[in-house]
Design a protein around this nucleic acid. Structure first.
Lengths: 336, 336
DNA sequence: TATTATTCCGTAAACGTTTACGTAAATAAA
DNA sequence: TTTATTTACGTAAACGTTTACGGAATAATA
């Protein structure tokens, strides 16, 4: 603990702690000369105000929390990057928590944050989400911004991407490139994010007069091993010639499955996925992706939170939708 | 701010705040029945102790800071994942800061953390590191653990990987697979981490009686555009048949450069890189990597920090070295 | 019974800030 | 000159905990 506090500083300067405090915060009540003296001494003694005393008194933490399912994820790490940069500009601190998709862990974090430890929360919901009550309680006490993984039943400010359109366009792209039977790797289905992607897929099929075949939809399982098995099953049993994956984590196994099953992407099977893989271009074959503006989502979410702090935001229920980018690559190239 | 505090709780229970506090912390001075009453009321009223009041009084923050160059990086996001998991087990909070390789930003974070905001720091140094004084000052006041990006001149507990051996073995592997002229993509050269990798490369060359050609070493530039140009220059001018990249960020451009220059990996050029890419297997061709145990490094670093907190660690200068994994893939396959 | 120990709880101070309130001195206005 | 205003600072309370100290009631011991 920095041994030098405001009292010591005041003592050295022959001033009261109150005056030092005001001088440091550039109050108009303090003379120019005194301010200079105080600042010089503060620098000399390497004074750093105790944040807990300050937070306790001011009832402000200058800290925000970010709750995500996983940090080691191309999308979330980029989003956190954006959030951190915005926070840094404002001299705010960023606490991170990962839920590993567990609703229980998520709730436990949220409850702990009711203590006043943070001034606001940015959250991307865990899949296994059922518990809306805690979220409602929290957001009645603290500003909460939802990003990407959102839930329509929970009120609040939300930053998402155009999931429906992206999925719709992805299917359209597959169809235009010759697909006749398109599978879907379903994830996030408890969240609006996942539901919108699924609707986009289904509507695109319908609009193209494709049959509505539930067997073509593979719902992601508990483990990556299970997912791999399910994907192989889907491919071998249903023999789709195109697949839309709603998350990156389900697209990668497709590559391995196709290798194992000796199927060629894109000739035997075209693949497109929601993904923030930095080097989708370098995969074999390069992967057609729906790229979400992850960094920008983080920046936007954090920006709105700060607007709320500064009372410059008055839309408690606005949903802001950023556009994803469909990047066409080899994995969906038309076959001959 | 949670409106219910310890005084309100005490009032509701007809007890003093002191008793409530002690009951909640399971003090032996409080009777069993009272403890039960207190806990029940606390749960009923959703009481969460104010962390700032507690930290102020106890001079403990239950928070650690993680300072890394970038969050959106396969290595660092995995390390943070490990750190967060360990912190969660202990009910600690994790603050993250990214330096973007700037020594100035790094120093500014460190100075701000002198305030007592955190009980300890886990840091992976920025490349642009010259300023050792601030680090020495900080580590004299707070436990600081260095991981991966370390500097020998700075004393402290360090968690690294076997950088020297990994680089040495990588070169050996290239030579065994037929390389006669091996380039090196140099990064982190201001840090021991980078220096060790470079030494490994140089020593392996020497031990194999390869000429010591400075032209084969490309030092990474300021931007990724510049790096790309430098890599192309190295490849076209020096015509190496093997390249060891000291960081993932320099290996990816090699793929693009080879594509542009119509060179085949591995036939014209074999490539190996330090990397934590999850799907190196899926690149075209799959990339031979030196895979660092990033998650484990995070776990280990955080674990030691907590041992220090609990006075169960007495080696202020120990360096713990975890082993990296050389995973041989297509990009270094012997040519015919 | 008298004395000592134990159990259980309350009082009050302390952690380091910030800020409402007060005030003396200097300046301006009447 | 007197009064009002402004300037510049100090005093003390407050934020919500934790904990040293003390003490009454009860239990144990002599």
């Amino acid at each position: 603990m920095g041994a030098v506090n405001i009292k010591k500083l005041a003592f050295e300067l022959n001033l009261s702690a109150a005056t030092v405090s005001r001088a440091l915060r550039d109050s108009h009540e303090i003379s120019r000369e005194t301010k200079i003296r105080v600042h010089e001494m503060a620098k000399k003694l390497n004074y750093e105000p105790n944040p807990f005393a300050s937070s306790l008194r001011k009832q402000k933490s200058k800290t925000i929390a970010v709750i995500v399912p996983e940090i080691a994820n191309n999308f979330f790490s980029l989003a956190i990057n954006g959030i951190e940069e915005v926070a840094r500009e404002r001299d705010y601190h960023v606490l991170i928590y990962q839920t590993h998709e567990s609703s229980e862990i998520e709730t436990s974090f949220l409850m702990r944050l009711l203590s006043g430890r943070v001034d606001g929360i940015l959250i991307s919901l865990a899949c296994e989400n059922v518990d809306k009550e805690h979220l409602k309680k929290i957001s009645s006490q603290l500003p909460v911004i939802f990003f990407d993984r959102v839930h329509d039943d929970i009120e609040g400010v939300k930053i998402t991407t155009d999931d429906y359109e992206s999925a719709y366009n992805a299917v359209q792209h597959l169809i235009e490139n010759g697909c006749k039977k398109i599978g879907y790797l379903l994830a996030l289905n408890t969240l609006s994010t996942g539901k919108n992607r699924l609707r986009g897929y289904l509507d695109a099929l319908k609009d193209n007069a494709f049959p509505d075949d539930k067997e073509l939809i593979m719902e992601s399982g508990a483990s990556s091993d299970e997912n791999y098995a399910l994907i192989k099953k889907l491919i071998t049993e249903q023999k789709p010639d195109g697949i839309l994956s709603s998350i990156e984590e389900l697209a990668m196994p497709c590559y391995y499955a196709c290798k194992e099953l000796q199927l060629n992407i894109p000739n035997d099977l075209k693949l497109i996925s929601f993904s923030n893989l930095a080097h989708a271009e370098l995969l074999n074959p390069s992967l057609t992706t729906i790229n979400q503006p992850a960094f920008e989502i983080g920046v936007e979410a954090a920006g709105i939170l700060f607007k709320i702090f500064n009372k410059r935001w008055y839309e408690p229920n606005e949903t802001i939708i950023l556009k994803s980018n469909l990047i066409k690559r080899e994995s969906t190239r038309a076959s001959f």
